[in-house]
């Protein structure tokens, strides 16, 4: 899993990635030095839980991924069963290409998670 995150981190514009368990605990991480991974993990967990709750309360079930777009970057949150893959990118990264990279990494992680369970 660590290797998948490290490979992802080598793509242009990706600042780092984390695998955060449903309880908010970091399972694996590959973040650049300037990013506080504990902080990102806690915030990512808050975002995904709040968004899921807001969606389910209003009849939108089965959230699989959430992309947060912001002034200086993007945050990709992807459900992989045992938790969420969280990827932080620079602002200028193309949404489409980053989505492809994140989805591909998420699929690998899902397979690994199934094997390890």
């Amino acid at each position: 899993m660590q290797q998948v995150l490290e490979d992802l981190g080598e793509k242009v514009g990706i600042l780092g990635s984390l695998l955060v368990g449903e309880d908010g605990v970091i399972v694996a991480s590959s973040m650049s030095g300037s990013v506080d991974e504990e902080r990102v993990a806690a915030l990512a967990n808050t975002v995904i839980l709040s968004a899921r709750l807001a969606l389910e309360q209003n009849g939108y079930r089965g959230l699989k991924s959430l992309v947060l777009l912001a002034d200086y970057g993007k945050v990709f949150l992807h459900d992989i069963g045992i938790g969420f893959l969280t990827v932080v990118t620079q602002k200028d990264v193309s949404l489409g290409s980053a989505e492809v990279e994140v989805q591909s990494a998420a699929q690998k992680l899902v397979k690994m998670a199934r094997l390890s369970v």
Binding site: A44, T46, A51, L63, K64, L66, A70, D71, Y72, G73
Partner: peptide
């Protein structure tokens, strides 16, 4: 989503939230 996204983006030093895309069974 806008409320929690905005607060979290700021805390991550990413400025304000400008959007979000949710994908699921819906």
């Amino acid at each position: 989503v806008a409320s929690v996204g905005d607060a979290s983006a700021r805390k991550m030093d990413l400025g304000n939230m400008t959007g979000a895309i949710a994908t699921g069974d819906f």
